Computed example of a mutant assay.
Amino acid sequence: MSNIPTPHIEAKAGDFAKTVLMPGDPLRAKYIAETYFEQVRCVNQVRGMLGYTGIYKGKELSVMGSGMGMPSIGIYSYELFHFYDVDNIIRVGSAGAILDDVNVMDVVIGMGASIVSDYPDQFDCPGHLAPLADYHLLSTAVESAKELGTPVRVGNILSEDAFYTDRQNSKDCFRKMGVLAVEMESGALYLNAARAGKRALCILTISDHIYKPEQLTSEQRQTGFGKMIEIALETANRA
């Protein structure tokens, strides 16, 4: 543990639980901790990337923001996996729907993450490595959703570096290949987990639609994702 604290996380050894929920927005991390955890303590405030540890249904869990994009979640997930001995990271975030039958407020679980990014190049694999969720976390999340009575879509999602792009119709290829939704973090998380021999999963709430004029407000994005969060917490409790 000689690498901690890190330049990005001020927590001490043992401050993080074995399972960490990771929303992009640090204020969503604060909301999750204050709404669902007991005995909450703040373990990170560096760069405003709030992290908390507490008790959920008798089990210690943590939650921390990841920031936006693969470079940001790449840093935080790497440090949690390698320096803080975290075993499981469950991303809880928002996504833009791509398919017509995926709607705003639907919950999507990413079985795999297609990537538009150079992030995978660092691993020096010939060809194209397929970033996948951990099957135990995935199957547990699906079962938890059934028990909670929340319908979910499970399938391929897209992780993309650029939110604004000059590329015309950049999602059309993924749409015709059945990719459910687009976000900006899961590909890096899945790759980092695979490299570390750890486990990761991405659970998303649809906040807008790429091909339809539908979207949530910023406040709804921050606090309106209760079903997704409940699935993630129940999954984390069984991890």
Rank of each mutant, 00 (worst) to 15 (best):
F163A: 14
T205K: 06
R167M: 11
D161R: 07
Q215F: 09
L204V: 10
S207T: 08
M177C: 12
I203H: 02
L189V: 09
A162V: 07
A188D: 03
I210C: 06
D172K: 15
S186Y: 02
A181H: 02
R199G: 00
C173G: 15
A181N: 05
E219R: 13
R199K: 14
E185H: 10
S207L: 02
K171H: 14
R175W: 03
S170Q: 13
C173H: 14
F174H: 04
P213I: 09
V179W: 00
E160S: 08
Q168C: 08
A200R: 06
E219H: 10
F174S: 01
I206L: 02
L180G: 07
K176N: 10
E160L: 08
L189P: 00
E185T: 13
T205M: 14
K171V: 12
R199H: 13
F163H: 12
R195A: 15
G187L: 10
S170P: 02
I157Q: 04
D161A: 11
Q168M: 14
N169C: 03
R221H: 09
E183S: 02
R195S: 15
V179K: 00
N192F: 04
V179R: 00
A188H: 03
I157D: 03
A193K: 05
A194M: 15
L204E: 05
G187H: 04
S207I: 04
M184K: 04
A162F: 08
D208Y: 00
A181I: 05
P213L: 12
Q220V: 13
L158V: 07
V182T: 08
S170H: 05
T205P: 03
A193G: 09
T205D: 04
R221T: 13
L158A: 06
E185R: 09
E160Q: 08
K171M: 15
S186K: 02
K198W: 08
I206V: 11
L191W: 06
L216A: 06
R221A: 11
E183D: 06
D172V: 15
H209A: 13
I206Q: 00
L158W: 01
K212T: 07
S159D: 01
I203Y: 01
L189M: 10
R199D: 03
A162R: 05
S159Q: 02
Y211D: 14
L204D: 04
D208C: 02
E185L: 12
T165H: 05
F163E: 09
I157L: 14
S218W: 03
S186F: 02
S186G: 13
Y190K: 07
A194E: 15
G197N: 06
Y164S: 05
R221S: 07
T165C: 05
R195T: 15
G178I: 09
V182S: 03
K212R: 15
E160N: 06
F163N: 10
F174K: 02
M177Y: 10
S170E: 08
G187C: 10
L189A: 05
T217R: 06
C202I: 05
Y211N: 15
V179Q: 01
